[in-house]
């Protein structure tokens, strides 16, 4: 459990380090996530001591958004000024994204379904 948490922190640190050294405009934790994914692919499985703390964090992921979100209270001026632009942009863009993604994937639907079922067997996910 503790060693798994340490691994997450070390991968985050490695990500931050690469971002700082290269000046890449990408968040350090995202680079750390890519590194961890690569390490898991090389390793071939997720060790139990990493899965336990990792899934514990992800189970409560939504709570972790609250402190940053409360910062909305410092942007009331911006919201008042741009609310219409934001509202229209979010509605149009979300609808268009759903349409585009579904249309691209729909022709492969049968193949997707079959492979997913083959791999998961009776397990269902």
């Amino acid at each position: 459990m503790l060693i798994g948490f340490l691994i997450l922190l070390v991968f985050q640190f490695a990500g931050e380090l690469v971002v700082t050294l290269t000046g890449m405009p990408v968040p350090g934790p995202v680079v750390g996530m890519v590194f961890l994914l690569a390490a898991l692919v090389v390793n071939g499985s997720v060790p139990h001591y990493l899965r336990v703390p990792g899934e514990a964090l992800l189970k409560h992921l939504a709570l972790l958004f609250v402190p940053a979100g409360v910062g909305l209270m410092t942007h009331f001026g911006l919201l008042k000024q741009d609310w219409l632009a934001i509202l229209v942009a979010l509605i149009v863009s979300t609808a268009v994204t759903i349409i585009v993604t579904a249309l691209i994937l729909n022709p492969s639907a049968k193949k997707l379904h079959k492979v997913a079922e083959d791999v998961s067997g009776g397990e269902g996910r």
Partner: peptide, 23 residues
């Protein structure tokens, strides 16, 4: 609480790996 967002983002690699193996 906010601090934990960093390690949690790294941990997203775990479900990603699980799904990745399947498809």
């Amino acid at each position: 609480i906010h601090f934990l967002l960093g390690p949690a983002t790294v941990a997203l690699a775990i479900p990603l790996f699980d799904h990745f193996e399947r498809v």
